[in-house]
């Protein structure tokens, strides 16, 4: 099977030839090319070359067109602060007072250079792999983007205290998110990761989520012209599993703080599970520990398809060394082939 066939089969909740592996490496591409993280993301050619080298080295079942989360705030006029050993951060919030929401306008995707760079990356990757390897795009949910747009504390206060301004901000962000996701699909992305950490039960209680982020997700995902995978970026989600399934998203990223087996029972046939290897502890994994962790995840969620092995955050930290990633690849090759007869 090609990676595309493998992934589509598991998304249809059937068993492919082996468990698909999404090694969601972004920054590692810079290391492959010997570039700083800032230089690496400055040109689409770099990211294309980086992703292709990573694909060749680790034989992941996808290409990952995600640059960094701060990019979307950059599109709104924000500043991106690069560091040498991790993903860039957003600088000062673009919405310094809640009144600034009243004048906010969504950026036009086609006129925003940082977004066009990502779209160019997707187009070039598509030229290289055609329909053999899924290309995964990414969009921050309208509900989660304000964490970076205005700062987490002031955003929480907005949700609780200024419902009208919250609604206006959601409308603006929805327009942008839909345009941005659809532009990536039009450029050749196979699916879009809908990053929504704010929806997690770690961050917000379910009753409030249903009135806010869930409504936003229902509306937004319905307007995206392709498959999506919702990701809570390490946050807990078991308490809202039915709500997430109701959004018609195809897959869900599972936190390392939750049990994949519980997720499998709760979602069987409705959502493909993506996860849930711990990227923070992964830095120190030995080959033995990699085998234990990967086998454990496959045993809990592999049977019947509907499972893609990945990290739990949607991005593998820069500090995770090459030999650990190769060890993960090796374990999947040895233990991930269907039928998983070794699983009790």
């Amino acid at each position: 099977m090609t990676s595309m066939q493998r992934v589509l089969t598991t998304l249809a909740h059937q068993e492919p030839d082996r468990v698909p592996l999404f090694l969601l490496t972004t920054l590692h591409g810079a290391r492959e090319l010997g570039l700083s993280i800032r230089d690496y993301f400055s040109r689409s050619e770099h990211v294309v070359e980086g992703q292709m080298r990573l694909l060749s080295k680790y034989r992941s079942d996808c290409l990952y067109a995600f640059y960094y989360a701060a990019l979307e705030v950059e599109a709104f006029g924000g500043e991106t602060l690069f560091i040498d050993d991790g993903p860039p951060n957003t600088g000062m919030p673009i919405l310094r007072r809640s009144e600034d929401i009243d004048r906010l306008e969504p950026p036009r995707v086609a006129e925003t250079s940082c977004l066009c760079r990502v779209l160019e990356t997707i187009r070039r990757l598509k030229e290289r792999v055609g329909d053999t390897v899924p290309i995964i795009g990414a969009a921050i949910s309208p509900f989660s983007l304000p964490i970076m747009q205005m700062g987490f504390d002031r955003y929480l206060e907005l949700i609780y205290e200024q419902p009208q301004r919250f609604d206006r901000l959601m409308a603006i962000n929805q327009t942008f998110c839909v345009d941005w996701a659809n532009a990536q699909l039009a450029a050749g992305a196979t699916a879009v990761g809908y990053f929504d950490p704010m929806a997690s039960s770690t961050i917000i209680p379910r009753d409030l989520y249903l009135k806010t982020g869930h409504r936003v997700a229902m509306e937004t995902l319905a307007r995206i012209n392709g498959p999506t995978a919702t990701h809570l970026a390490s946050g807990r989600g078991l308490g809202i599993v039915d709500d997430i399934a109701a959004t018609k998203t195809a897959a869900i990223g599972v936190s390392a703080l939750e049990d994949l087996a519980e997720w499998k029972t709760a979602t069987r046939g409705r959502l493909t599970l993506l996860g849930n290897l711990n990227g923070v502890t992964m830095r120190h994994w030995t080959a033995t520990l990699a085998e234990s962790e990967v086998r454990g995840a496959i045993a809990k969620a592999g049977r019947g398809g509907g499972f893609i092995l990945a990290d739990n955050h949607g991005e593998i930290p820069w500090q995770v060394p090459e030999d650990v990633l190769l060890a993960i690849r090796d374990v999947v090759d040895r233990w991930g082939c269907y039928p998983l007869d070794w699983v009790e």
Partner: peptide, 11 residues
Amino acid sequence: AGQIALSQIYM
């Protein structure tokens, strides 16, 4: 214990 959310802690 994962029984309440960060937003409740903050507010």
